[in-house]
Amino acid sequence: MQELAVPLNHVLLVSSLLFCIGMLGLMIRRNIIFILMSLEVMLNASALAFIAAGAHWGQPDGQIMFMLILSVAAAEVAVGLGLVLQVQRRFKSLDMDDANRMRG
């Protein structure tokens, strides 16, 4: 049974791939909605790495970190989407580069 289980480095590989895809999305997209989605993917990828490591040791800590990441993601999305609404209202566009005038 033990040798038949999922190898840890494969799970981590999936996690790394997901992270890099998310990062790529973060860099190439200009729409703020997509940027937020990419962030979700990256957070999820790191959560996967935590779960895998926690499972490897058979300890609950990995899942606890997952929950903390979950709450960070929830808070981030709530604020981020609020910002999206404000950006849309103010610039009439969701293009990140339209909002790059810096003030103050």
Binding site: A5, N9, H10, V11, L13, A55, H56, W57, G58
Partner: peptide
Amino acid sequence: LISSIEGSASAGTV
């Protein structure tokens, strides 16, 4: 980094 890691990803259900 990952390539050097050994072992299974599951040591029973938590």
